[in-house]
Design a protein around this nucleic acid. Structure first.
Length: 112
DNA sequence: CCTTTGACTCACT
DNA sequence: CAGTGAGCCAAAG
């Protein structure tokens, strides 16, 4: 087994894959859960490669303000918003409504 | 091997 | 109260 093969990216994918439908999380939350709260940028960077992974709902990952900062990286800037609304998440002006209410913290949910 | 970037976040002005 | 700047860390070139 190539356990060492697991990199920061793989770790991020694993967490993002566990995001329940209709829920959203922030890069910092994932980074913090991984023990790298200061590497929040790396989370987004990892998502960039996650584009090829069908099990990684990058559209459920937004910045800590609930703003769809990464929408511009999708096929179309509307794709991210459409996917979120499709799951029941209201998005207005590229911002997730009730983000604080829908925010899913892996540190509290996945934390033992 | 060293340099640059990047879907963020915090802090100061 | 709002905007701009610097910091951080890891992967790709």
């Amino acid at each position: 087994m190539q356990e060492k093969t697991y990199t920061f990216f793989q770790n991020v994918y694993d967490v993002v894959r566990q995001i329940p439908e209709g829920r959203v999380t922030s890069y910092g939350a994932i980074a913090k859960y991984l023990g790298m709260a200061r590497s929040s940028r790396m989370v987004g960077y990892a998502m960039n490669a996650a584009h090829e992974l069908p099990d990684v709902p990058a559209h459920r990952v937004v910045n800590r303000n609930g703003l769809l900062t990464g929408k511009h990286h999708f096929s179309t800037p509307f794709e991210m918003q459409q996917l979120l609304e499709k799951e029941g998440v209201e998005v207005k002006d590229d911002q997730v409504l009730n983000f604080k209410q829908l925010s899913w913290n892996p540190t509290e949910e996945l934390k033992l």
